[in-house]
Amino acid sequence: MFQEAVCAIFLIVGSTFIFIAGLGMLRMPDLFMRMSASTKASTLGVGFLLTALAFKFTQLDIVSRAVAVIVFVILTAPVAAHMIGRAAYIAGVPLWYRSVIDELCGQYDRCDHRLGSIDIRTQDDERAEGDA
């Protein structure tokens, strides 16, 4: 009975998180916020659903496989998000028009995608002086 209750709670919490991820995917105004809202919430949601499964079947082999999937998803989700985000930024996907700041703008070398580290907050003035 206790096991069933825990399993049910994890199912409901997990699917709610995944639902929020889907809603965020639909509602957020630009790609980067869509990724922020969807990839993490869905990772957490799948984690909860697999935990529910581990509570339902308490055999060792099932639990270890569920843990393996959770660990794998948690390890790979940020890497995938980072790769898509970087590729999208380089491809010129625009930020939302109400974004307050973009310090990555203009830092990429167009040919080989080497990324500089000029601190534009302090060096903007110097560069302006150099141009003049």
Partner: peptide, 20 residues
């Protein structure tokens, strides 16, 4: 990229559906 992350979300949900 929007379409790619939509597909990514669908496969993640697929894992969840399999668990359920």
């Amino acid at each position: 990229p929007d379409r790619v992350i939509a597909l990514d979300l669908m496969t993640t949900v697929g894992i969840g559906i399999i668990a359920v």
